[in-house]
Design a protein around this nucleic acid. Sequence first.
DNA 1: TCGCTATGAATGAAGG
DNA 2: CCTTCATTCATAGCGA
Lengths: 189, 189
Amino acid sequence: MEERMSGFFIAKAGNVRGGGGGGNNAGTGTKCGRWNPTTEQVKVLTDLFRSGLRTPSTDQIQKISSQLSLYGKIESKNVFYWFQNHKARERQKRRRVSVGEKNVIRRQDIFSSSARYYSELDLGSEPERVLETLQLFPVNSFRDSESEKLKLRRNECKEAHAFSYTCSTEMDHPPLDLRLSSCKQASDL
Amino acid sequence: MEERMSGFFIAKAGNVRGGGGGGNNAGTGTKCGRWNPTTEQVKVLTDLFRSGLRTPSTDQIQKISSQLSLYGKIESKNVFYWFQNHKARERQKRRRVSVGEKNVIRRQDIFSSSARYYSELDLGSEPERVLETLQLFPVNSFRDSESEKLKLRRNECKEAHAFSYTCSTEMDHPPLDLRLSSCKQASDL
DNA sequence: TCGCTATGAATGAAGG
DNA sequence: CCTTCATTCATAGCGA
């Protein structure tokens, strides 16, 4: 993945404690072993993401990071990682959340309450805060969004394994059988 | 003692208090806002963990959460976070013990050795418990257990290097213009 | 109520 | 791109 970055970072990136800053960090004022994005930085990044930017190119990363450096200490790799993580986590989150009630048979609580108590992050309730820097970015990376939909799961049937633990320790719960049958289980092993 | 709560709230759904008697929650009268595992759920998870499962795959997470949803409200991400935290904390605790007494005073928790946990869910100094159920688990989960003690990989970058503003010096860019001019231009829109 | 601990949740940073 | 590790934040639970 770093081949496209031309190696403008990825060195060792130790502690880049900006002692002279005195307030560059986010409100928490943590020990700064790693990048602590300020609210403005997060806002800009989130806005860019919402605008469709998912995999910025090297040039875009440069531009973004230099622009964001005005709000606080930041490096190019931070921007790179931010987009990587944000994209991956959005997908992961959707995946993990979606399965919540796909195959869950609730015997006692059929659609009672239990609303989405946690889906509150960026994409959901983020208001339209189009800041001034947003328009400057060309949102030409929309085609990247569709490429992700076309990809297929590579961890489908890597190892069809069934596990059931019924002999580990004293158990009060019934012997739970957690058969993993991702693709198909032709014959049980 | 300084307070680190300086604004910067991410967002959260309002805590919806269940009003005393929930239903599928644990006996402690928990409510929405944060997953509170029931005793059965904790037991199952702990049992799985003790059986050697440390990093369940996505499929396993799905299955486990589906099964555990019968004991109470749970989502897939809860299982994911549970294993992540459990593994991380076990390692963290062990590491703290190993480096031990002359360690630097990072924050405030060197006293963790005083309470050795009354519960059985914490292994403490138990390496890898190999029991007969072990073979039922995918080998995928075990390579993680073995590799963790073999590789002491990234734990070096805690020294001060502090050349933070190097990037801003290297990157020569227009101050307030983020237009992409030299890279691939946006064709559409 | 206050302080501390345990722990769920989030995220930056890497590895592969 | 996907997975994982480390660190941190936020909060429930409990004792003094």
